[in-house]
Design a protein around this nucleic acid. Structure first.
Lengths: 192, 192
DNA sequence: ACTTATAGATAACATATGTTATATAATAAT
DNA sequence: ATTATTATATAACATATGTTATCTATAAGT
C-alpha cells in the first residue's frame, strides 16, 4: 500500500554512477543525484539508509561493470584478458578508475589475493609456461600486474604519448609480456 | 612596523604538509593547520591570499622534496636513479603520492615531457644501449616508465606481496629493465 | 609618548552537504 | 468511502569549511 514508486534503487545508482564517471566519486552529493533524477533527496533516503549504504551499492555497481568488461574479453588467455579488460576500464571510466585505485587499496588487495592462485593455475596450463616453477610464475605474474597497473594508470591520466591508441596499448602490453617471459626462459637456460 | 610575526609562511606549509602526509591533500583545512600550529586561522590569511595560494605553495614543497630525493640518488645511471627516487617517494609519502598521481595529471604530464629528451640522451651515452635507434630507445623508456609507475602505485597502496622490501622492489625494477633491454636486443638480432 | 601599521584571536557569515521532521498526495486494504 | 501506508517534496537542522570583519596588542617610526 502507498503510492507507486517513481524512483528505483537502480535509477539512483545510475545517477550516482554518472556523476562519479564525470566528476569523481567524491563529487557525488545527495542533492546532485536528486537533481539528475529530477526529484528531491527524499527517494534516496527511502531506498538507502544513508550515504554509506549508497556508496556500497555504487562500489558493487562499479565492480559488476569491471566484471562485465572482463567477461567480454575471451581469448582463452586469462592473463591477456585481464590486462585488456583492465585497460578498457581505465580508459572508459578513467575518473572512476583513479578513484578506485586511490581509495580501495583495501578492496583491490583482497581482489588481487583471490585472483593470484587462479591465475597461477591458468598459467600452468599454458604449454609455453610449462617449464617454469611456481615461484618463477609468481615473479612473471607480479611483473605483469605491475606493468598493467602502470599502463592503466597512464591511460587513465593521459600520460601516454599523444595519439597512443588502445591497440598501441595492447601491443605494448603483449610485447612486455613477451619480454618478461623470454628473459625468464633465457635465465633458466643459463642456470641449467 | 607592527608586532613580530610568530608564524611564518614556512611553518604554515610545514603544518599543511604534515596533514597531507597522513590524511591526504584534500583533508587539509584552515582550522586543522591552525590547530597544528597552536594558532587561529588569522596567520594563514596574513601569509596566503586564500586556500588556492596555499595549495600552490604546498605543491611546490612536494615537488622540491621529490627533487631532493632524486638528487640523493646518484649512481650515475639516471634511469635507475629516477626509478629508485620515485619508489622512495611513493613509499615515504604514500598518501601524497597517490594524491599527486590522481590530481596532477597535468603537472606530471609536463614533467614527463620535459624529462623524456634528457633521458633519451642519457641512454644514448650508455654503451650497452649504443646499438638502438632513438625509436627503440623511446619504446624501452616508455616500458620502464610504465613499469615504474605501476610499481610505485603498488608500493603506495600496499598491493605488493607481504614483506616485500625496498630492496625487493629495486631488484624487480632492475630485473624488468634487463628483461626489456635483453628482449629488444634479441628482436634486433632476428631482424638483422 | 604618541601614532600607525599589522599580526593574531575571535566570532560571525556564507556556503555546501548529510540528514531529518513535516506535510502532501497517491494507493491499497477494509 | 474511509483508513492506513508510504513515496515524494519541502524546509529546516547540524555540521564542516573558506572567508572576512572586528578587536586587541605589539612593534616601529615620529
Amino acid at each position: 500500500m502507498g503510492p507507486k514508486a517513481k524512483f528505483t534503487r537502480e535509477q539512483i545508482i545510475d545517477a550516482a554512477f554518472e556523476i562519479a564517471k564525470r566528476e569523481g566519486i567524491d563529487s557525488i552529493t545527495m542533492r546532485k543525484i536528486a537533481e539528475k533524477m529530477g526529484s528531491s533527496v527524499a527517494p534516496i533516503y527511502v531506498n538507502f539508509k544513508n550515504v554509506d549504504e549508497l556508496n556500497e551499492a555504487l562500489i558493487e555497481r562499479i565492480i559488476s561493470i569491471s566484471h562485465r568488461l572482463l567477461m567480454e574479453e575471451n581469448t582463452g588467455n586469462p592473463f591477456r584478458d585481464i590486462g585488456i579488460a583492465s585497460l578498457r576500464f581505465a580508459m572508459e571510466y578513467s575518473v572512476i578508475f583513479r578513484d578506485l585505485v586511490l581509495k580501495s587499496g583495501k578492496y583491490m588487495r583482497g581482489y588481487d589475493e583471490k585472483m593470484m592462485p587462479t591465475l597461477i593455475e591458468e598459467m600452468q596450463k599454458d604449454p609455453e609456461l610449462k617449464e617454469f616453477t611456481v615461484d618463477e610464475l609468481k615473479t612473471i605474474l607480479l611483473k605483469m600486474r605491475i606493468f598493467q597497473l602502470g599502463l592503466s594508470m597512464m591511460a587513465a591520466n593521459s600520460l601516454l604519448p599523444k595519439d597512443y591508441s588502445k591497440e598501441d596499448m595492447i601491443d605494448i602490453l603483449s610485447s612486455t609480456a613477451d619480454d618478461v617471459i623470454m628473459s625468464a626462459k633465457l635465465r633458466k637456460g643459463f642456470l641449467k
